[in-house]
Simulated assay, not measured.
Amino acid sequence: MNGATTRRLPGPVRVGLSRAWLETREFARHWESVAFTFALPALILLLFGVIFDGSTGDDISAAEFYLPGLIAMGLMSVSFQNLAISIALERENGTLRRIRGTPMPPSAYFVGKTALVFVLALGQVAVLLAIAVGVYGADLPTDPGAWATMVWVLVLGTISCALLGIAFSSLARSPSTASAIVVVPFLALQFTSGVFVPLTILPGWLVNASSLFPLRWMAQGMRAAFYPDEAAVLEPSGGWDLSTVAAVLGVWCVVGLVLTLATFRWKTSEDG
């Protein structure tokens, strides 16, 4: 038009990745957030490795026994818990309202948050593996298939929990209530999803209830990756059931997306 060069605006993915870089740097500036995000699973692994040393038998150390469940717990922490609380805070302080008023595509915001969560997820796994191997000399899998299982469980589990965290952020009226809404059910699920104790010693109704949520299947998938095959007898069905793990986590990805699209709010209820 009149010799002017038409410039194509960057797409949502490119803008979202740029925002992910911004959010990652912003997150890294606050050491309290970094410590809070990574400290709890790492501290539990350190303590359990000492407290339960020798109580898990000769074939597997305490660190190796608790590592898969704590990885699943850590992934849910950096995705579900982190996003539910941080987005509620951004909604309360007006950050979301200001972002919605910019030319940035709304989908770029979610791309940025998802990319940030994956950075944190990889960091969480790296910290736990470093403690298990460096402090307790844990043996890691040598089969490439086991690592492939860990990767797809990490991806599906993190996406499903991230979407649920985004949806949960809209339930809270303030950041303070967000902590209660998120932390209480997350804590309950840790004790009923095989993170700390085998599912076979829990009441059947409790196992059935925990099976409705992603954490139980994330922990089972991680155990399939890290435990020897004969340890599958510790599962309620006597097997790893990886097809069921993939199906349930896949369904939760779809459910989380539907809930996010249906409930997400850019403004508080007081803003109208």
Rank of each mutant, 00 (worst) to 15 (best):
214 P>E: 10
5 T>M: 15
241 D>A: 11
228 P>S: 14
24 T>L: 14
194 G>K: 04
190 Q>K: 07
105 P>T: 01
165 G>I: 00
3 G>Q: 03
192 T>S: 13
141 P>V: 10
85 I>N: 00
232 A>T: 05
106 P>C: 06
32 E>V: 13
97 R>S: 14
186 F>A: 12
2 N>W: 11
66 Y>Q: 03
263 T>F: 07
241 D>I: 09
21 W>R: 15
226 F>I: 06
186 F>M: 12
41 P>I: 06
44 I>D: 01
110 F>L: 13
27 F>K: 03
38 F>C: 13
255 V>N: 06
254 V>T: 10
107 S>Y: 02
272 G>C: 13
97 R>P: 01
268 T>D: 08
267 K>L: 14
145 G>I: 13
176 S>C: 00
204 G>Y: 05
249 L>V: 12
8 R>P: 00
7 R>K: 09
260 T>I: 09
261 L>S: 11
32 E>R: 14
214 P>N: 09
248 V>I: 15
174 S>A: 08
118 F>A: 02
46 L>C: 08
238 G>N: 11
254 V>H: 04
58 D>M: 11
87 I>P: 00
19 R>H: 07
116 L>F: 01
43 L>S: 08
30 H>T: 15
156 L>F: 10
244 T>K: 11
209 A>N: 05
234 L>P: 04
89 L>C: 06
125 V>A: 04
50 V>S: 11
204 G>T: 14
257 L>D: 09
179 S>M: 14
204 G>M: 06
208 N>Q: 15
205 W>F: 14
175 P>N: 06
102 T>A: 02
189 L>K: 01
215 L>F: 05
84 A>I: 01
94 G>D: 09
113 K>E: 09
245 V>Q: 06
29 R>F: 11
18 S>P: 01
69 G>A: 03
85 I>R: 00
223 R>L: 09
61 S>K: 04
246 A>T: 15
134 G>Q: 14
133 V>I: 14
25 R>Q: 14
266 W>L: 05
123 G>F: 12
168 F>T: 13
